[in-house]
Design a protein around this nucleic acid. Structure first.
Lengths: 290, 290
DNA sequence: ATTCATGCAAGCGTTTTTGCATGTCATACA
DNA sequence: TGTATGACATGCAAAAACGCTTGCATGAAT
């Protein structure tokens, strides 16, 4: 009559991720194991937890019920892991941070380098992604985010204020300077699909030539001379082959924050990372504003 | 970095019960297994959870921290199991009840007999004890208790009101009747260690001869003629060799309740048991009052 | 219609986990 | 001072859990 806790966890992950393979990936086991645990749980409870359909496992009502409660167990487990992290006084073991790829590549790499050198016993894991990871679930311990508000339940620290401006190749920049009234091609981000606001009236003719959903790709486009790109100052300045063009005067942009769960924030490892990061930010503040 | 949930549970039980053997009994595994799981958890977390002392495992601070959170996980697990019980519409599987031994022996046995006959697919487990089991933790699904108040967070149903009176052997009863002024020996319960209040003034001389901490033993003493015993009417009437003596007129006593957790109470199995029990109580109410 | 990707079941050999028997150590007791 | 008891460690063999591979069914893309 006693179900193993790990089996409950397995039910939860299968309900949450929908397929044996996806659940298996989360638990880092073979998907066969997921199937076996589910069967074992069903036998122990003498209760059908999933319907086996052609396109996967579909939870029954009982399966959903278990997932609901197992989810609460998971919440408690996450709280435990956060507590352990801050209770752990040793400067050793794993620490996971996440930040946007381009911020890492163009600004944070030295911080990371210095940190791993300074704390060789800490295994730093860097998740370079634009996704907002769930720090409550410890998908990461700390996150560096570009955002206008740092998140609700998290503890945060504003690292930097920054501005955006327009960048293009040297060649394109000269062409625009020689003919301000000519048509200017823009490469823009999908979420702001129009020509930026605030363009200097001296350059009256603007149009969108391309839209991207990825800033790395846009950088490539800009370097290839496909058009003008609005981007944060630090990015444009740090990308070889691009120069700032006066079409779009610098504008304030979302701040850069360091955020973490309140349980994790005071831990020694988090403090150690914060220290190096803050120092680096102070020293290079000039890269971000005009 | 991921601790198995079952290992967390093992830490919890070891902290709670203090020794490998005691924890092992709870989980129904060999105590060696407990030791191994603890070691594995410590290695995974890279953290000492227990001090190995000569007289057993003593939790470290981290061990206590884990136990605290694992306890919350356990609370969620218990909630899950209660939910499953009430979600389970089938009249089959296990059902656990608890009641005082003497109530079972002298009154409830027919209910139990009838229930197991009527619902052969339900495996009834009866815990005959005076201990107050924790229904939140599902140490039992339903409890029959003799109490003045049925418990706070539980759902309850008053089954019977009852009275106590004085009982002794036929021989002793006749002796007392023949000499009301003579010294009357009492056998009393440890928690009320004096001669009962409310004795008829016609019997002025009373003393405590023996104290017991167990009512079964007191019944034996009464049957052996060691003295007069105050006990519930149903008990005295149902015990061969005892007759009521008029020394102590019948007095109201604590009611008999059926209680259960609110999650369990509405389940079909609980309802089925309740039905038979209530009918039996109604039919035999006369056994409990004068 | 064919091909490909996804999702799962079943069989088989291997690894991990577990139970049991044995040995050690400290404590309590007579 | 010997002896019993409770609590744990260790080594070995059985049992359980696991990963890998093959094969089948379904639905989407070509």
């Amino acid at each position: 009559m006693n179900v193993a806790w790990d089996d409950l966890r397995t039910v939860l992950l299968l309900v949450r991720h929908g397929s044996l393979a996806a659940a298996a990936e989360q638990l880092d086991v073979n998907y066969t194991t997921i199937a076996r645990r589910i069967r074992r749980a069903e036998q122990t409870l003498n209760l059908a937890l999933f319907e086996r359909l052609a396109d996967g496992y579909r939870p029954t009502e009982a399966g959903h019920l278990i997932a609901k409660h197992a989810n609460e167990m998971e919440v408690a487990e996450h709280a435990l892991r956060r507590s352990l992290l801050s209770a752990d006084v040793a400067l050793s073991g794993p620490l996971t941070i996440t930040a946007p790829q381009l911020l890492i590549a163009n600004f944070l790499a030295p911080v990371i380098d210095q940190f791993t050198t300074g704390y060789p016993d800490i295994t730093l894991r860097v998740l370079a992604t634009n996704d907002i990871l769930d720090l409550t679930r410890l998908e990461a311990d700390l996150a560096i985010r570009i955002s206008r508000n740092p998140g609700d339940t998290l503890t945060g620290l504003r690292l930097l204020e920054q501005e955006t401006a327009a960048f293009a190749t040297q060649e394109l920049a000269e062409k625009i300077a020689g003919n301000p009234k000519g048509m200017i091609d823009w490469v823009v981000y999908d979420t702001y699909p129009n020509v930026p606001k605030g363009i200097d009236p001296a350059y009256p003719n603007n149009r969108v030539r391309l839209r991207f959903d990825d800033m790395v790709a846009m950088l490539g486009a800009a370097q290839s001379g496909l058009g003008v790109v609005r981007m944060p100052l630090f990015l444009g300045r740090g990308t070889t082959g691009l120069v700032q063009v006066p079409v779009l005067p610098p504008q304030p942009y979302a701040d850069i924050w360091l955020v973490g769960h309140k349980d994790v924030w005071p831990s020694r490892k988090a403090r150690a990372f914060r220290e190096g990061l803050v120092a680096h930010c102070k020293a290079h503040r000039g890269q971000f504003v005009s």
